[in-house]
Amino acid sequence: MSEMTLESRMAGRSRPSVRSRSLAWIPFWLTGPAAVFFLVLLGMPLLMTLVLSFYTFDYTAGISETLTLSNYTDVLFDGYFHEIFLRTYEISLITTLCCVVLGAPEAYIIYRMRRPWRSICLLITLGPLLISVVVRTLGWVLLIGGNGLLSQFMQALGLAGTRGFSLMYTQTGVVIAMVHVLVPFMVISVWASLRKVDLSTGDAALSLGAKPFTVLRRVIFPQVLPGVLSGSLIIFALTASYFATPSIIGGRRLKVVATSVYDEYLSTMNWPLGASISIVLLVLNVVIVMSYSRWVERRFRRTLGEG
């Protein structure tokens, strides 16, 4: 938006009355503070990071303002970064699928409960979203770490050797903790869809001879599919850039994009490279989110009238 265009638009109009003219400015006065705040505090930093990503870095001389594309060629063509990006998106995909498999049925089960269980279970499911990620991840460290409950349990069952058993620094460990952190988003999202579903469609299918599982598969699930898909999008986008959980559970051994950005910035101090990784991550995120939501919208326009 530019105020120039508005000014010229206003001027072009044939003699606007004083009243309509002053009214026309109201939305700009109202949004002005927030707009300035965002343009300065969001626009500027991102722009500066974009510029930074083209600067040159030298381990002895530090950052110099010589423009180069080498940061991007490193990120885009180096096998090391390919591995990191692939691992990140693999973790995202698996986490998202697990969240669908766990979260969607759970949302339906809670939805079918009666008062007061319904609100209690919803509270337990959504509540963890408000508890610090560091705390929740710490819980998983205590559960799946070397001397954790899981290890003791497996030892007691004789499934793990005496040396114990740890999921720390493994992809499985990261995925489990990430699913725990993010699955409430799937429940909320499917819940929102379920609220629009007429549950008597399930009864209708039953009356037409469908078995309970067929009712779920053919009638209920397709109707909550938009919720499943939008929940998946949120979870996928969040996991792809998640930092805390992969950093604490995956550590240095299992680098993902977010942790490698952190390392470039705060250990290696190669800010331009870190900046270019961030820009690539941002662009990928935006492209995935945009194209996916456009696809979802088109897919459901005729039937459910929503994305």
Partner: peptide, 21 residues
């Protein structure tokens, strides 16, 4: 779009951008 955009920008990206800024 501008006001909602931080939802779409990874926090890690915002973090490094703010650090520089």
């Amino acid at each position: 779009g501008l006001f909602l955009s931080p939802l779409m920008i990874p926090h890690i990206v915002l973090g490094v951008a703010f650090l520089r800024f």
